[in-house]
């Protein structure tokens, strides 16, 4: 078994009570798709921003409504604009959507393991996202592009259910216009006006240009998508040790106390959410682990 941890960018020491919040307020919120929105938060007391590493997540608490783990989707070089992209599917995420600008919420974190961007230096990087799985990968893309010269080819493969589910449209348009980033998008179901690729995201792997032997792959999306994407990358010749996946499990505490996020011997909150593929490959093949 191999571990990833890279040093997060100057992570601040935590409070002695790991369940202690910092007070934040909603700065602004905008709708990304019909069920997904992005929020930008600011520390209530105007204190120094807490740095984070791409791939990490926060626990967001809405007064009396509940708490939910949400990956950070903003630019790690601009931590003062704490950014989360949220799909409104449960009571906590829906109450997050109802928060108005200026209203308070609790934030604790950042938690979890980051994407191994340092270790990928000199390699081609293939980023594969399914649905809202693009959110925890966006900070990695920002950082890769900040340090563009450190990497070889950079490829973004993004799949959603339908064209209306595509996140970050303006940004994607800008990224598609770049010559130093190959962006391919696919949808499971096309609708009128869609002229792009149709099919699951793993079908894009054969279309992208990268050198498998020198490639680091970062994958986030539904578990079934992760599994088949990793297999397809392996088949194309990417070394399993260079494939990283971000997993999702129920989380209540984010610090390894509550037991909910266990995945075999792993605590997704503490050992993950980003894992090297060989560490989880066997478990991914078992139903209902």
């Amino acid at each position: 078994m191999e571990t990833i941890p890279e040093k997060p960018f100057g992570q601040e020491p935590m409070s002695t009570d790991p369940r202690h919040f910092r007070a934040y307020r909603m700065k602004r919120r905008w709708q990304e798709t019909h069920d997904t929105f992005t929020i930008e938060l600011a520390a209530m007391d105007g204190s120094e921003p807490v740095n984070f590493a791409p791939g990490q997540f926060n626990m967001l608490y809405v007064f009396g409504q509940g708490e939910v783990p949400i990956s950070i989707s903003g630019d790690p070089r601009q931590p003062s604009a704490l950014t989360h992209t949220v799909r409104a599917v449960g009571s906590a995420t829906k109450s997050l959507r109802r928060l108005k600008a200026g209203e308070g919420l609790g934030v604790r974190g950042p938690y979890g393991s980051p994407w191994p961007l340092e270790g990928a230096r000199g390699n081609d990087v293939v980023v594969v996202a399914g649905g809202i799985g693009l959110a925890p990968l966006r900070p990695a893309l920002y950082e890769l592009l900040h340090r563009r010269a450190d990497y070889g080819q950079i490829v973004l493969l993004y799949g959603t259910r339908s064209p209306t589910d595509i996140l970050y449209r303006k940004e994607l348009a800008r990224w598609r216009a770049r010559f130093d980033l190959e962006t391919l998008i696919t949808v499971d179901r096309a609708t009128d006006g869609w002229h792009g690729h149709v099919g699951v995201v793993s079908t894009l792997i054969s279309k992208a240009s990268f050198t498998p032997a020198n490639t680091t792959a970062l994958i986030c999306g539904p578990e079934i998508m992760i599994r088949f994407t990793a297999l397809a990358l392996e088949k194309r010749g990417v070394t399993p040790e260079n494939i990283y996946v971000s997993l999702e499990r129920n989380m209540k505490c984010a610090v390894g106390f509550c037991g909910h996020c266990q995945f075999g011997p792993l605590f997704v909150c503490r050992d993950g959410p980003v894992f090297s593929y060989p560490r989880v490959k066997g478990l991914l093949a078992v139903r209902e682990v």
């Binding site: 007064f63 009396g64 509940g66 209540k252 505490c253 106390f257 509550c258 037991g259 266990q262």
Partner: peptide, 26 residues
């Protein structure tokens, strides 16, 4: 067995909230 969950509750006025940790089970 150490697993727990949390429950967030409010009073009827919505001005007072509490968070309770409770034993949970896999």
């Amino acid at each position: 067995c150490f697993c727990t969950t949390v429950e967030d509750v409010t009073d009827l006025s919505g001005a007072h909230a509490e968070r309770w940790q409770k034993w949970d089970s896999c």
